[in-house]
Design a protein around this nucleic acid. Structure first.
Lengths: 227, 227
DNA sequence: TACATGACGTTTTTTGACAATCGTCACTTT
DNA sequence: AAAGTGACGATTGTCAAAAAACGTCATGTA
């Protein structure tokens, strides 16, 4: 039912699928990439993931559908880049929330997770059309999903590393610990799971703090004893 | 695309949907309940969740489809009971794995979780037909899902309580701790998540032990220091 | 040579008529 | 009265034909 070939060797950072012409004029090419992705992003928001066609995107840019295929190898490639942009936005919010150097690692991890949760609720689930795309991304194992998860894990690992240096955590391996920490909080940070919990009428908010405390304890941290 | 109206008010505990006749002959009625559910279970295994019709079930029992509706209010109610039976089987295996009194709470929790994981992989995912039903149960928020999860949480809570009494854990509230412990291990114990990870080609096995150690640490337990 | 497009084969989605299934009810049987 | 059933309306699923969208390519323009 579902075709898949998401094992291309793209450099994950640039997000530019390899095309035949990709030799010299990469500046103009990248600019056109952005225009197409931005247009697609807007149309996906407006009409939904399924209803947006390549012809729509081309028409919006006053070009032929065929021309779009000079820049992207498929519609899926375009939509993956749209999702990549969305994921990058979410991570940016997370960074803003957690990159306060005056805070301890505990508090930074807490804010990182809470920001992630809130972005998921507000950005990925509240908007039906966007959520349909997120759902498709997860269901079909778009590479952007794993990239996003891995990027977040690295953010976690860095904070854990800082926390270890500061003597806040007793774990020794930030990489291993970040995997566990992320897995332990998946019920608050996985769009599909969160959506399911909300649809079941659950009130997630009061479960976040206890679960965060639990996971932080998994890192070997203790809450400040004095109150 | 997907229609849904799963907001019926079944009594979740008894698992017997309210019927008009439910007054006197509950013995014969319950027997017929079991026969119908057992037949449905068999047919679902054989033909799948969608392809099994109440006409099939009725024919297998040499009765008319209409008669089935004297015992169950809908086909969904029958299938929910089938799923309930499957869930009970899984929990039984979990009990067998964890109810060894000679073991410490740490080890019992570990075995409980591993048994749960293996049952999910072997029973709920390996068999395509069964997995389709499990997927429908989760997707449509069948009450059996929440019941199953709550039952498991209570098993966890009891073991944690034993562990607290034995001085193995430093947490104070087994109820709260069991919620967190369960949530932290969802990536190994949620059928849909596990299925997604397997489909992505991930090797879950090596992640289980670290995550279990992490979650156990969340309970305030330390691994035995000596080798 | 680089950029762009209309035409076109192939695959996917939509459509609409038809069949199957669900669940109800008046009715028969015991 | 209790147990059971055939018939029936309403909903849902099926399937093939039609439409649309995907992606390719030969051709046109600068």
């Amino acid at each position: 039912m579902i075709e898949r070939e998401i094992e291309t060797s793209d450099p994950p950072a640039t997000g530019r699928p390899g095309m035949r012409t990709g030799t010299a004029k990469s500046a103009a090419t990248d600019a056109m990439h952005d225009r197409i992705v931005e247009t697609a992003k807007q149309l996906v928001r407006q009409f939904g993931y399924q209803k947006t066609t390549v012809a729509d995107i081309a028409a919006e840019l006053d070009m032929s559908p065929a021309n779009v295929y000079r820049f992207f190898s498929s519609k899926a490639a375009i939509c993956e880049d749209v999702a990549r942009k969305l994921a990058a936005d979410v991570r940016e919010k997370m960074r803003e929330a957690a990159d306060d150097p005056s805070l301890g690692a505990r508090e930074r991890l807490r804010r990182l997770v809470l920001a992630n949760h809130h972005e998921i609720v507000n950005r990925c689930i509240a908007d039906k059309r966007t959520h349909a795309m997120v759902h498709a991304a997860v269901e079909n194992n778009w590479s952007v999903v794993q990239e996003h998860q891995e990027s977040i894990r690295q953010m976690i690992a860095e904070i854990i590393s800082d926390g270890i240096d500061a003597g806040e955590f007793s774990v020794s391996d930030p990489e291993a610990a970040s995997h566990c920490f992320q897995a332990a909080l998946i019920s608050a940070c996985h769009p599909v799971i969160v959506e399911g919990r909300l649809r079941a009428g659950e009130d997630i908010q009061p479960t976040l703090d206890p679960l965060l405390d639990f996971a932080l304890r998994g890192l070997g941290s203790r809450e400040p004893s004095g109150g």
